[in-house]
């Protein structure tokens, strides 16, 4: 790890100001950034820790019924407190291990947009809104490919607002080594239709499986997905599975998510 200065602002405004300097990086729970620093793959001059900002922590319900989760809220807190959205709480409770869940944050996860992370599937399948220090971004506009998002330099995720579905479920098939999602599928059923988002599988990061959404909007049952398939083209192919295998698992995990949705 190279030397760096660390700042611990207590307000979003101070954090934004601190991030205005060159080579400053925001530090959420540090579950990606700290290992990167230890391997000397990143050399910020200043780290701006977001963990001291009380305003961006916690889970609450908005007047319109949406579940609002502060960007600095840990996975463990979401698992414990997002009881109005059980599919989301279950997802948070199965990220990594207890150490990861007690440090890692939802804001850090969606800002990083790891192609194998769990949260992006929930955000996209829920049609959630990513709120930053200066705007609100719809999930469909937010995710822009592997490790790419609509965030500008120095922009901080302060909150994610989830419309709560009637039924939902996240099914994750774990990569054997990292236990990240080899394929993870989040299914959310709303009054106006079903959304299906897939993580882990695509070289373009999280994506919506619209064909399945249409079929499931017409008939929210596992068999509705029978006969549907995603192409293996553009799927990640590595030591742990070919693109064809991942494409196959998208179907399996979608059916299982529908069957288990509550």
């Amino acid at each position: 790890m190279y030397s760096f200065d660390i700042q611990r602002p207590t307000s979003v405004a101070d954090a934004v100001a601190a991030l205005g300097t060159d080579e400053a990086l925001p530090l959420g729970g540090g579950q990606t950034l700290i290992p990167t620093l230890k391997q000397r793959l990143s050399a910020p001059s200043v780290l701006v820790s977001l963990t001291g900002i009380a305003d961006i922590k916690g889970v609450c319900t908005a007047d319109d019924g949406a579940l609002c989760i502060g960007g600095g809220t840990t996975h463990a807190t979401v698992a414990r407190e997002a009881s109005s959205y059980p599919g989301l709480a279950a997802l948070a409770g199965n990220i990594g291990d207890p150490a990861v869940r007690n440090r890692g944050t939802i804001g850090g996860s969606v800002a990083n947009n790891d192609p194998s992370a769990c949260y992006p599937a929930a955000v996209l399948a829920s049609g959630a809104t990513v709120v930053t220090n200066n705007r609100s971004i719809a999930a469909d506009d937010y995710f822009q490919g592997m490790f790419a998002t609509a965030l500008d330099e120095g922009e901080i995720v302060t909150e994610v607002r989830f419309p709560v579905p009637e039924k939902s479920c996240y099914m994750k098939f774990e990569q054997p080594a990292s236990r990240f999602a080899l394929v993870g599928v989040f299914v959310a059923k709303y009054a106006d239709g079903v959304r299906v988002a897939v993580t882990g599988a695509s070289e373009d990061g999280v994506f919506r499986w619209t064909e399945a959404e249409e079929a499931l909007s017409a008939n929210f049952a596992p068999e509705a997905v029978d006969g549907l398939s995603v192409s293996g083209d553009g799927m990640i192919s590595d030591l742990h599975g070919s693109g064809a295998y991942r494409a196959h698992l998208v179907g399996v995990m979608t059916k299982r998510a529908v069957a288990a949705a509550s």
Binding site: P176, A177, S178, F180, D238, L239, H240
Partner: peptide, 24 residues
């Protein structure tokens, strides 16, 4: 039998060079 696989690519790069890819 089920998990561990130390794999190289054809250029001799170690593919399973950490616990992210080497399954214990």
């Amino acid at each position: 039998a089920l998990l561990e696989n130390c794999a190289y690519d054809e250029n001799g790069q170690l593919l399973s060079a950490s616990y992210m890819d080497y399954a214990m």
